[in-house]
Design a protein around this nucleic acid. Structure first.
Length: 907
RNA sequence: AGGCACGUAGCUCAGUGGGAGAGCACUACCUUGACACGGUAGGGGUCCGCGGUUCAAUCCCGCGCGUGCCUACCA
């Protein structure tokens, strides 16, 4: 490794070439590689978020991943052995949907596998003119794998461009074989411990994706609806009561009526039987404290199923199941007058239902409302039209699958669940053992955990996911026995029950009486994603490695997935290991567009990052990111990128100057590092640097990289470049009567200052700091990469003594600033020499400035300097320690004669 | 409806029981010896409102108002 000739450097910073060089160099030298031979205490383990490989990159990705990288780079410089993997979350609905749209294909489970069907053969049908091409499930999965590979490359390219210090040997995908093994092993272990069960139960169901969804994947959206007041009859009575409903189309699914037990209006009805209009079904009337007397009319119909409360009532009252909404969202055929479907007038009921059968909710609702207007359809002849009033518009919150477009239905289906409700307390205790950054994010976890109402539904009726590794024995009639599933053997994993035969059976017995049926469901993608710490540690495959890497140190993630990813990961760690999955959770905020909406692909307000990186440099983009504190949302502001770029350019120029000035060690010493730092100004500079090192280190220890950046940046601009560098320039060049020792002190200080500041910036600005480091400091210090160089400590600065005059530097800066101000007022440039500068000051100020006066004098370019000594007691303005009384600029001249040194005078 | 967070210069945001700040933007000026991909300076404020604690409140407490997110409400 040789030093770079500073003179040969380009005049301007050429970021593209420099970044490309270091991306390649870091890869070649492997400086980010994990070393499995080092101890756990020396190791810092990152549970990297595997990005959803959806083919779209935006600045939000750069934002949050940079936060983690900054923390990682700090730990690396602290000497830690870093485990920093990268995963790709490619299984699941987003990928399926993207593949469906991209290739314009749909799965047909009946289709046979077509070998060798590849990307090239399934050309994207951009216009979508033709009906979708149907493909077999295995072919569909292959297409998913092929497309995600392309997307992963795009992500990988971005991560390299922004300088993530990932160990690329530790790459995984949540659909790859090792992940499938881990997810299936996790399931087998849950089942073995009684934590996994399957059950036919009402489940939130998306009618478009035709799959169950979990509580955590549900969101609410405001939807306009209408209240319908409908009269119900009472068996053995001519009277009626009125319920208000937004979903009259579910009338056929009505299985009960309820009101609050204290509601005087309905108290007499409890225990009686109501009769529904249209279908004339007798249903029980029961009291329930869950009913709210202030809502609607205070009395309501219980349907199977309108909402989650219906499920509660259905269970508590052991009501019958009348499921009329099918899995496709259409009303299923039913027959009133048959068992389970009672009616006082089955013929009329069936006739009315026939008009809505096969329709979706909206269509059915319109028909039902018309039917309700007809007095003939009343629940008792004397009551008049069931519809008591014109529908009244209301807006209400309706549950949606977060990725879906139409409201969820509740459909009774058989699903696999993992028990979580009974472990709420343990889950809460786990959350308390983890440090959340910022701390208030722990509240979100606690709120979610405490409010959990359902076990985790882990089965999904989808294709591109990890198969649930079970089969069901078939009886002589070909009916599956769900109570006694056949589990895969751990040594056979991964398995696909739709193509593999279970232990003890052969393929010919598939779907045959007495044989077996393979489970067709796959896991919820979170079931696999919740194992990312174990995927990184090779859980179940390499026990030694697992012990070394689990639990992890940090989990970086964003706050909207605390209830999913963080929650489920903690659940898995509890279920499998009885411990926490990581010690720290590091929460990044969101990137908001200028209207303060979250940037997301679906809103179409994202900004593509590559162009930003080209324009403002990778470090410039990282600077923007590094300015945002954890947990704080940040508005996208291109100006911040610009400021970042300016910092990068400034570092380039300042470093070029410092290193060119100090290319040769002081004449009295072999190296810069050994030269004594003796001058007052230099000692002051180092004293302030000590403060910066202390503050930046403390900030990093609190995970507050933005604070560390702030103190470093402030020091760099306002102390190093604006003031110290200007004051020390003359001495560093050996101008005037500078002694060799004084010059050596300046040179040693400049190099030491740059050396330390570069390392303080290195976690945030890895490219420019590495570039500068490589010219000179790297070869000199023997640390080839700044990113493997030690984090600055006070010990490195301990050889420099404390300054003698506490105010010397502060005053020198102030006087220098005042002189510059005066020059500006006079319309001259800062560099213009002054034929005379007269400064009034108290004796104390004059004395304090004495040890730095030569530097100050040089910086002001004063040919003659006069002190006007003010009596301290006589000053009228006590706040003014000094004032520039006279400043005479020399006329601008083409002949740039350096000002002759003239002695300062006092009067 | 509850919880959490936030409200400071035109914008983006730091901050602290005692002096209201930074960057950007704006205005004026400067070819300077690292840097015009730069520099020097200037104007700009009801620190959301009202009460309380305190010698002293932008900061602590209470009550409002507004914004965002999470949870709940779905008849």
């Amino acid at each position: 490794m040789t030093k770079v000739s500073i003179e040969s450097l380009p005049q301007h910073f050429e970021s593209a070439a420099v970044e490309a060089k270091w991306i390649a160099r870091w890869e070649e030298t492997g400086i980010y590689h994990y070393d499995p031979t080092r101890s756990r205490e020396d190791t810092f383990v990152v549970d990297t978020p595997p990005p959803t490989v959806s083919g779209s990159l935006h600045v939000g990705h750069v934002f949050s991943y940079t936060h983690a990288d900054i923390l990682v780079r700090y730990q690396r410089m602290k000497g830690k052995n870093i485990f920093y993997p990268m995963g790709w979350d490619d299984n699941g609905l987003p990928t399926e949907r993207r593949v469906q749209n991209y290739f314009h294909v749909r799965v047909d489970l009946r289709k046979p596998y077509e070998p060798g069907l590849t990307l090239a053969q399934v050309e994207p049908d951009v216009a979508k003119r033709n009906p979708p091409r149907t493909v077999s499930r295995p072919n569909f999965i292959e297409l998913c794998e092929q497309l995600t590979r392309v997307d992963e490359d795009a992500f990988k390219n971005l991560w390299r461009r922004v300088g993530l210090s990932v160990d690329w040997r530790q790459e995984y995908a949540t659909i790859d074989a090792r992940s499938r093994v881990a997810a299936q092993r996790s399931f087998l272990e849950c089942f073995a411990h009684g934590q996994a069960y399957n059950q036919e139960a009402p489940t939130s169901w998306d009618i478009d994706f035709q799959t169950a969804v979990a509580q955590a994947e549900i969101e609410e959206r405001p939807v306009k609806g209408q209240f319908h007041d409908i009269a119900f009859g009472i068996e053995g009575s001519d009277t009626s009561f009125v319920i208000a409903t937004t979903r009259p189309e579910l009338l056929a699914a009505c299985v009960g009526i309820t009101a609050h037990p204290d509601d005087a209006r309905y108290r007499e009805l409890f225990g009686k039987t109501a009769v529904t209009p249209l279908y004339r079904a007798p249903v029980p009337i029961f009291p329930s404290t869950l009913a709210d007397p202030t809502k609607g009319t205070g009395i309501l119909m219980v349907c199977t199923f309108g909402d989650a409360t219906d499920v509660t009532w259905w269970r508590q009252e052991a009501l019958p199941l009348r499921q009329i909404v099918g899995k496709d969202g259409r009303l299923s055929p039913v027959a009133f007058g048959t068992p389970g479907w009672p009616s006082l007038d089955p013929e009329a009921a069936n006739q009315l239902y026939a008009q809505i059968q096969g329709k979706r909710n909206d269509g059915a609702r319109a028909v039902v409302v018309e039917q309700l207007r007809d007095p003939a359809n009343a629940s008792a002849k004397a009551l008049g039209a069931p519809l008591q009033a014109e529908p009244k518009p209301i807006e209400r919150a309706v549950k949606f699958f977060e990725k879906g477009d139409r409201p969820l239905e509740i459909v009774s289906t058989r699903q696999w669940f993992v028990r979580l409700l009974e472990r709420k307390d343990e889950m809460l205790a786990m959350g308390d053992r983890i440090e959340w950054h910022p701390p208030f994010m722990a509240t979100r976890y606690r709120n979610w955990t405490a409010g959990l109402q359902l076990d985790w539904c882990v089965s999904r009726q989808r294709f591109f996911g990890v198969p649930i590794p079970v089969w069901y024995p078939l009886d002589a009639g070909g009916n599956p026995d769900f109570e006694h599933p056949i589990l895969a053997r751990p040594e056979h994993l991964p398995v696909d029950p739709t193509t593999d035969a279970p232990p003890g059976y052969d393929a010919s017995q598939r779907n045959a009486p007495g044989g077996f049926a393979g489970e067709t469901d796959v896991f919820d993608t979170w079931f696999t994603s919740s194992l990312t710490p174990q995927l990184g540690s090779h859980w179940g495959v390499d026990a030694e490695r697992h012990a070394q890497l689990f639990p992890a140190d940090i989990r970086p993630q964003s706050h909207e997935i605390i209830r999913t990813w963080a929650f489920y990961t903690i659940a898995k760690a509890l279920l499998h290991e009885g411990t926490i999955p990581w010690r720290h959770v590091v929460i990044s905020g969101w990137v908001l567009d200028p209207d303060r909406k979250k940037m997301s692909k679906s809103k179409g307000n994202t900004v593509t990052p590559i162009q930003l990186l080209d324009t403002y440099t990778a470090d410039g983009a990282r600077y923007w990111s590094a300015n945002a504190r954890l947990g704080t949302d940040t508005a996208f502001d291109e100006k911040m990128f610009k400021v970042g770029r300016r910092l990068v350019v400034k570092l380039f120029n300042a470093a070029k100057y410092v290193l060119a000035q100090t290319a040769e060690p002081p004449e009295t010493h072999e190296t810069h590092a050994t030269h004594a730092i003796t001058e007052e100004l230099d000692r002051h500079f180092i004293a302030e640097l000590r403060g910066v090192v202390t503050e930046a280190t403390a900030a990093f220890e609190r995970f507050e990289y933005a604070e560390a950046l702030s103190v470093t940046e402030k020091f760099f601009w306002s102390v190093l470049t604006d003031r110290y560098l200007e004051l020390v320039k003359g001495r560093a060049r050996g101008d005037g009567e500078t002694t060799a020792a004084a010059r050596g002190s300046a040179v040693a200080t400049l190099r030491l200052g740059l050396n330390v500041v570069l390392r303080l910036f290195a976690p945030m600005l890895p490219f420019i700091t590495e570039e500068i480091w490589s010219w000179d400091l790297g070869p000199e210090t023997g640390h080839a990469s700044i990113h493997r160089a030690p984090w600055p400590t006070l010990a490195e600065l301990a050889h420099v003594g404390e300054p003698a005059e506490p105010r010397a530097f502060e005053l020198a800066r102030a006087v220098f600033g005042a002189v510059n101000r005066r020059k500006t007022e006079l319309g001259g440039s800062i560099g213009r020499p002054a034929s005379l500068i007269a400064v009034a000051a108290t004796p104390a100020v004059r004395r304090a400035l004495d040890p730095v006066f030569a530097d100050l004098r040089w910086a002001t370019r004063a040919r003659q300097w006069q002190w006007i000594i003010r009596d301290a007691a006589g000053t009228t303005d006590a706040a003014e320690d000094f004032s520039v009384e006279v400043l005479v600029l020399e006329p601008p001249s083409d002949a740039a004669e350096p000002p002759a040194a003239t002695a300062a005078t006092e009067e």
